[in-house]
Amino acid sequence: MKTVGGVGIVGYGAYIPMNRLRASEVKRVWGGSGTPIEEKSVIAMDEDTITIAVECARYAVRRAGIDPQEIGAVYVGTESKPYAVKPSGTVVAEAIGATPHVMAADYEFACKAGTEAFQTCIGLVSSGMMRYAMAIGADTAQGRPGDALEYTASCGGAAYIFGKKPARTLAEVEGSCSYVTDTPDFWRREHEMYPRHGNRFTGEPAYFKHVIGAAKELMGELGTEAGDYKYAVFHQPNVKFPIKAAQTLGFSMDAIKPGLIVPFVGNTYSGSTPLGLAATLDVADPGDRILAVSYGSGAGSDAFSLTVQDAITNDRRLEPAVSRFVDRKRYIDYSVYSKLRGKIIK
């Protein structure tokens, strides 16, 4: 889907809680043969998806330098809503001062709920319905004790404000593509604390089929190939998958390295691709092209082709880079982690 009218990102912000649980600590408690990442981020006792969303939304507003009253939509993409019924988006909109003339809702599509909101925001500003629209991907992901996902399920998020020229954009969206099928690779039923995953569907029929499918379709429509992109970001549930996706599509390690934060942060689910993109924008230069492809179980991918604009050089310095949050950490052990994630029965 090619965009019209010069739609782009006018501001972005990231936030990662500072607690870290080493994967070796999970292995110490539950056994296992290896560790898929180094460590993962964990919320503090007083953090949740809403607090993460507000933090990154505030950074995005400040980096964009806009009046929050001009933001016409606030969408929070997450699979870990603090309330089953009561929108996270209203709290975020109130906290950044965007209320009351604002659309607000929560999106759910496993790990691609945030980029699903990107698509909506791009459409809303393209049509001229509003000047700015905000999409957030944030999660405090759940991992069943001892499950493979417990090594990686982590916490964090990133917010993006979309606008259309003559608004000053940091990166212009050339086009996007969604690739969605009904695939039972991962789910969580109502009232269940932890998700389940269908092992045989993870990998080729799920992640790779959708990520590769969305990327190829978008590049075909735009007439681009891997060599046209300086950087690429792929959903990062572990270290292996995004590297294999990059290799399959012809991208080098240098292209994905800036956005590959999963070894040190874990899988932030809806925050994963938005955070990887933010880390890439932190280092990209004007004129660079970025391919960003999310993946959400269930299943689907959103692919975006972006061209970095001149404003990035100044604006990325205005608020903390993703690397600042990656480096800001304090280690906790499995017992503290269990307390923070509500795994202890009182």
Partner: peptide, 20 residues
């Protein structure tokens, strides 16, 4: 200023957010 949970009214009540 950070945005945090300040108080939580059990498992079914309101979650109070605010500054820390």
């Amino acid at each position: 200023a950070a945005f945090r949970r300040v108080k939580v009214d059990g498992g079914s009540g309101i979650i109070e957010y605010g500054y820390k």
